[in-house]
């Protein structure tokens, strides 16, 4: 009887220890991203004159700055990917004509679950699963 108890405790201790050790390293896993783009491609950034000043209301961020229409346009033209309700769409160099017109939209307002390609003023984006 004594042996039974000792063995039981020993087995439990080994398994529980392994479990705790395994789970305690969960934070070291690389997270899964819904969208991943190439970060080695860098561009100069819009040559704005925004001065970054601390925000007294937010210790985590500099105070908001106003974007000019040119900056917004610049950002839109650099956009590498769009994540929305219908999936992740990645910028491509040109329209993919193998994707049917039914699955192609030319405005974000027209997008549906069936959409596979966005042909927008700021570029072409194709859905990736």
């Amino acid at each position: 009887m004594k042996n039974k108890i000792v063995w039981s405790f020993a087995v439990c201790a080994v398994i529980a220890g392994t479990s705790i050790a395994f789970n305690s390293h969960a934070s070291l896993k690389e997270p899964v991203a819904a969208v991943t783009v190439d970060g080695s491609i860098m561009h100069p950034g819009y040559p704005s004159q925004h001065e970054l000043i601390p925000d007294p209301n937010n210790p985590h961020m500099y105070a908001p700055v106003e974007l000019t229409p040119e900056e917004i346009d610049y950002t839109n033209k650099r956009m590498a990917a769009i994540l929305n309700d219908h999936g992740a769409f990645y910028r491509v160099a040109e329209q993919d004509y193998s994707i049917s017109e039914d699955e192609t939209v030319r405005s974000m307002d027209e997008i549906t679950a069936n959409t596979k390609q966005l042909v927008l003023d700021n570029g072409v984006f194709v859905k990736r699963q």
Partner: peptide
């Protein structure tokens, strides 16, 4: 340097669950 990665746009509400975005091979 002031150089930037290409932007990722998120046009969706995430509250009860989060989402993740990433840039690979950042210098």
């Amino acid at each position: 340097t002031g150089r930037e990665t290409d932007p990722i746009t998120v046009e969706k509400t995430y509250t009860s669950e989060n989402t993740g975005i990433s840039w690979g091979n950042v210098l």
